[in-house]
Amino acid sequence: MLDLHGYFPFILKGMVVTIEVALGSLLIAVILGMLGATAKLSKSRVAQGIATFYTTIIRGIPDLVLMMIIFFGGQLIVNDIADKFGWGYIDISPFFAGIVTIGFIFGAYMTETFRGGILAVPRGEIEAGYAFGMTSKQVFFRITLPAMVRHALPAFGNNWMVLAKTTALVSVIGLQDMVYNANQAGGTTRQPFTFLLVVAFLYLLITGVSDIALRLADKKFSVGVRRA
């Protein structure tokens, strides 16, 4: 039978870190995605250019390379700035770097997702909002945003699943997530396979639970839509 030598709580502690990183980066990704989508759909050429540059670069470079640039490079920049102001050495924690990097990467994917979602909202609904005398802010929060969720949800779900798996990369920059802890426990007990397999199933658990949650959300946001 599966003998984890009492290391299971240790792995679960790593799982908590994994989930924290995933949710933290999801938050950043959603904010960046909304900003990116707004920029891409705006009339300003500059905003469009910046958003297009952002999504192209992110989708062209592997996430691991980006993580190294932000983790090591970010460390250098922060300390250059800190030096100038005489703050002394500032250490960027892998936790912070991980969340920022993954959030930054998936912000680009969310940009495309949200842009598609906003474009799918029927023009007439937005016009009707304006006709009622709503300000553009009110139209966005009362009409566009709730209506786009349904269109963006499937791609959003995919992004979330990929994001959850991408968090495994933070173990490379030394953050003690469940992959890192499994390698540690596997090394001490000389059973790396057992521990990594447990971690693989914990990932399946995370994606499985997300799948159910997303299906429920889809049902909720598709109320009133008839399907063949």
Binding site: K165, A168, V179, P192, L197, Y203
Partner: peptide
């Protein structure tokens, strides 16, 4: 459903 990194570690380590 599982990260590529974990799959690679499973085989290598």
């Amino acid at each position: 459903g599982t990260p590529l990194l974990v799959q690679m570690f499973l085989i290598y380590y």
